[in-house]
């Protein structure tokens, strides 16, 4: 795992390796890498609580991280695809499609809704099959799919509206004892993701299929099966993301989540992942997604004028990732 801090090959090739300056009693750079988004998250929370001490409460945490839940799920979906060395440009529009299906069908015609959502997951797996069998660049196929999902969503629900079923809204507003629901979900997802991908036997095979497909294939593992697993699970997570989002907004909107696609990519990379394949961290991705969704709240707490908020989010992304570079440098 010493490869984790290797810079992306497109920029780092030929760069002289810097010798470890104070080797010995240093934290494992692996762990530092993981700690970075976590540190950013804690710093942001401290700033927010310093400005509004009242936010440091059960309800405060709940409100701050409510909208993080769908983003975490979409980021985990993106993570699985990035793990194979691919990228998914369609996940944001797929989440929008799911919210439309939920808002139009789930309350009155649950069977049709289930059928459509299941078809969505199958379509995700089919995209994986197509990419694997025809050796297609994932970026173009998923770009095409992003138009397909947007189109389907607009056909189902031409303008934002509809109603999410009450049980879904109630689930998202559930008051869990002691720890607010969004945090419970975040921890559960991180733990499940870590266990399934990093600790289970087949999870390690999937990581290997991403890191070195040829070696995995030579060792007798089916790359087709790996892509079906990863894309299918990604589709499932994206469906959950859409369910969570429509539970929170109580309605559907084809254009609600296009930003999830790239924010998800940001969360994966922020969490220590890399595009080279096989190098992703479920825990890091969850923390990365929470950091990105908290950045918006932080900026409004800081009274950053609305016109600068987007830009400040970009600057935060730059700053956190710049920290990664310095860790990578000194940790060698």
């Amino acid at each position: 795992m010493s490869e984790v801090v290797r810079p992306p090959p497109s920029v780092g090739i030929g760069k002289k390796r810097q010798p470890a300056r104070r080797a010995g009693h240093r934290m494992n750079p692996d762990h530092l890498q993981l700690a970075l988004p976590f540190i950013a998250l804690v710093v942001m929370l401290v700033v927010i609580f310093a400005i509004r001490p009242a936010a440091f409460s059960y309800f405060g945490f709940g409100l701050l991280f409510n909208l993080a839940v769908p983003l975490i799920l979409a980021s985990m979906a993106q993570m699985l695809v990035i793990c194979l060395g691919d990228i998914d440009l369609s996940v944001g529009n797929f989440v929008g499609f799911v919210t439309c299906v939920v808002a139009v069908f789930l309350r009155d015609k649950p069977f049709i809704a289930m059928l459509l959502l299941a078809a969505g997951i199958v379509a995700y797996a089919a995209v994986g099959v197509l990419i694997q069998l025809r050796s297609l660049p994932s970026i173009i196929v998923t770009l095409g799919m992003s138009f397909v999902w947007l189109g389907l969503a607009l056909l189902i629900l031409p303008s934002p509206g509809g109603t999410a079923p009450d049980w879904l809204t109630a689930t998202m507003a559930l008051q869990t004892p002691w720890i607010p629901l969004p945090l419970v979900i975040a921890v559960a997802l991180a733990a499940a993701g870590h266990w399934l991908l990093k600790r289970s036997a087949y999870g390690v095979v999937l990581l290997g299929a991403g890191a070195n497909p040829r070696a995995a294939a030579r060792a007798g593992w089916s790359l087709l099966q790996a892509r079906i697993m990863m894309y299918g699970t990604a589709g499932g997570l994206a469906v959950l993301s859409g369910l969570a989002l429509s539970g929170l907004t109580t309605s559907g909107d084809p254009n609600i989540a296009p930003t999830y696609t790239l924010l998800g990519v940001g969360a994966v990379i922020l969490g220590g992942g890399s595009f080279t394949g096989g190098l992703v961290s479920p825990v890091g991705t969850v923390v990365g997604a929470m950091t990105l969704s908290l950045a918006g709240s932080l900026l409004s707490f800081l009274n950053v004028p609305p016109v600068w908020q987007v830009g400040a989010q970009g600057v935060i992304l730059f700053l956190v990732l710049a920290g990664r570079v310095f860790i990578g440098r000194s940790g060698r």
Partner: peptide, 10 residues
Amino acid sequence: RLPPIIATLA
């Protein structure tokens, strides 16, 4: 040392 996708996104 950012991947181009992330750098241009930010």
